[in-house]
Amino acid sequence: MRMSVDLRDLFLYEAFLYYNPLLLVALMIWLWGVNLWVFAQSSVNYAKVFDLPQTHLSHREIWRCATWLTLIVPTSMTAYLYLYSHGEVSLAASQPVLLYAILLMILLSPFDMFYLSSRFYFLRTVWRIILPLQAITFPDFFLADIFTSMSKVFSDLERSVCRMVNRQVATIAWFEADSICGSHSVAIPLVLMLPYLWRLFQCLRQYKDTKEKTCLLNALKYSTAIPVIFLSALKYHVHPDQWVGFYRPLWLISSVVNSLYSFYWDIKRDWDLRPAAS
């Protein structure tokens, strides 16, 4: 039995949630390949800069990975939408689950296939980011910086996996905002905070090793993101009058502080766009 047009439109959002983060990851991989191509054309020894192993991937191999991901993800999404629209709910629900499981197995596979050394290098760097118990290297904070730009992707991945684990794929259970995987889940702000906390701890570790005060100022920049995320989530857990009268002004102030501080730091420190001395 075919589903109604209205219900099918509602489930387009669910499909977007499952597949959008993976498509964004594919786009990121494409752009990383572009970066490597530009480095190669400019004779930049990026392997030395990023402390890459001798077996590091070239831009062509990066693009090959991006191509496969760009093909596989829309194929799974099309299968999900087609099967659900034709009443094959169980088969439809299996599509994102299989996709996520296959990608995870490829990433964690210990076998010498699918660029084992590069996967191991990536996973090792991620582990160093999560537990910054050692001196911070350039690849550590470079990848962690990328993760801060992907916080929404991580949040969507968490929501997707939550629905898969709780068997809410291709059901209407997730429409309830206060459900375990709903839009009001406390896990969402926690996952959004993680990349900023990782960079915060890295900055503190760098200060411990170097005693440079700029590390503390950089840590302060990442700490200003925490109140913004916390107060944004708090909106769904307090009375509307409390939100409007007390918490929303705090949220606005914290958002302005975070935006201005981040903008200043990017211009003055990261990009070093200061007026030239006359």
Rank of each mutant, 00 (worst) to 15 (best):
L10D: 13
F11S: 09
Y13S: 12
E14M: 02
Y18Q: 06
Y19W: 07
N20K: 09
A26I: 01
L27Q: 04
M28I: 09
S42P: 01
Y46T: 03
Y46F: 13
V49C: 05
V49E: 12
F50C: 02
D51L: 14
D51A: 14
P53W: 06
L57I: 07
H59K: 01
R64N: 00
R64I: 00
C65Q: 09
T70Q: 02
T70Y: 00
P74E: 11
T78W: 08
Y80H: 12
H86S: 09
V89L: 14
A92W: 04
A92E: 10
A92S: 15
S94K: 05
Q95P: 03
Q95M: 15
L98A: 14
L98Y: 09
L99Y: 05
I102H: 05
L103A: 07
L104C: 09
L108N: 05
L108P: 06
F111R: 13
D112Y: 01
R119D: 00
R119H: 03
F122P: 04
F122S: 03
W127A: 14
I129M: 15
L131M: 14
Q134L: 15
I136S: 05
I136Y: 03
T137Y: 11
F138W: 09
F138V: 13
P139F: 01
D140C: 15
F141H: 14
L143Y: 06
F147T: 13
K152M: 14
S155E: 08
E158S: 07
E158Q: 06
R163P: 02
V165F: 14
W174G: 06
A177W: 06
A177C: 04
S183E: 03
S185R: 02
V186A: 12
I188D: 01
P189N: 05
V191C: 07
L192P: 04
L194G: 02
L197A: 11
L197Y: 07
W198F: 15
W198E: 10
F201Q: 13
F201L: 15
C203E: 07
C203P: 05
L204F: 15
Q206I: 13
Y207W: 15
L216Y: 04
N218D: 14
N218K: 08
A219Y: 07
L220N: 06
L220W: 11
K221R: 15
K221S: 09
K221I: 11
Y222D: 03
A225C: 13
I226R: 00
P227W: 08
I229S: 10
I229Q: 10
L231P: 04
A233Q: 06
L234W: 06
P240D: 04
Q242Y: 01
W243D: 11
V244Q: 06
G245K: 03
Y247K: 00
R248D: 01
I253F: 12
S254P: 11
S262T: 15
Y264D: 02
D266A: 09
R269T: 01
R269E: 02
D272G: 03
R274T: 06
A276P: 03
S278P: 15
